Amino acid sequence: MSTPDVKALADALERATADRTAIPRLTDTVAFDVPTAYEVQREGIARRIAAGERPAGVKMGFTSRAKMVQMGVDDVIWGLLTDGMLVESVVDTAALIHPRVEPEIAFLVGAEIHNPAEAATAVAGVAVGFEVLDSRYTGFSFTLPDVIADNASAAAFGFGTWHPPRELANLGIVMEIDGRVAQTGSSAAILGDPYRSLRAAARLALAAGVPLRPGAVVLAGAATAAVPLPKDAHVRVTCAGLGSVEVTTR
């Protein structure tokens, strides 16, 4: 089998973003494994950084047991965040293909994490957050290598006020769209405790040579299923003890 062309795979994903048009799964035409998928992911992020964006942290995926079973995996995946993905108040849906939104728990790293065991003590703050997903594949359908190559579907993210580190194992979370409840859940859906996801993020980051340094944001994973994100909408995510975060779309 010939070696997959990482740059060509990244080119295909980049064109999908530029054209705002979903493409068939890359694995439908090119066979590649998970390590290669992460190379494609890093190539895509490297291009964003070369264009002027800065690394902002990482996001975790497949942090629910149900999603792991669905995808036939036994470990989480991760993607990389840049400051170009950070949303202050408005998400431009016209720049996306078929966006979805999900509630998150976010960590702010306060000290460089040198090993997963010290991850919790390196946290400077925790917040309720949201992530906008936008798979570049037709029908939001993908294999494991496909979604990793697509940077775990990461499109945008935001978070509320940072709070001092606290227990996060079972906090109620509500996501509303235009004042109507779209999803309810618990932070326990994130590997039983979001701090477990943080440790997994540290493990994967260290293995990839991507240190989690002060100022980095870690999105621990979705507390509920993602829902379609419509144009001209108002989204609010509320988490017990962490307040809320709001964003609008256009």
Rank of each mutant, 00 (worst) to 15 (best):
F130G: 07
P164G: 06
G179K: 08
F107W: 10
A149M: 02
V227K: 04
F130R: 03
A122M: 05
G215Q: 10
R166I: 03
W162D: 14
S135C: 04
F159I: 05
E102L: 03
F130C: 02
A222D: 00
V101T: 06
A220T: 04
S135M: 08
S186Q: 12
L198N: 09
A208V: 06
R196A: 14
P103M: 03
V126F: 06
G125I: 12
A124N: 11
V174S: 05
S141E: 15
P164D: 13
S141V: 15
T138W: 11
S141D: 15
A201W: 07
G179I: 04
L212G: 06
N151F: 04
L219T: 00
V126C: 12
L144V: 15
A149I: 04
A127E: 03
P145L: 09
P214A: 12
T138D: 14
I113L: 06
A202R: 05
A122H: 13
G221F: 04
I190H: 11
G160F: 00
Y195I: 10
L133F: 13
I190R: 09
P116V: 01
T121N: 13
G139R: 10
A124T: 14
A155L: 10
F157H: 09
L108E: 12
G110N: 09
A169N: 13
R100Y: 03
L204A: 08
E112V: 07
A169W: 12
F130Q: 07
G139F: 09
A169M: 03
A111V: 11
I148C: 00
A220H: 09
I173S: 06
N151L: 00
N170A: 15
D178Q: 06
E131G: 02
P103W: 00
W162V: 14
G215W: 04
T143E: 11
F142I: 01
H114I: 13
P164V: 15
A182C: 03
V227W: 01
P194S: 12
A119H: 04
A220L: 05
F157K: 11
F130D: 07
V181D: 02
W162I: 12
T138K: 15
P165M: 09
Y195D: 05
L171R: 13
G215V: 11
M175K: 00
R136H: 14
A152T: 09
G192H: 11
F142S: 10
A200W: 10
A127Q: 01
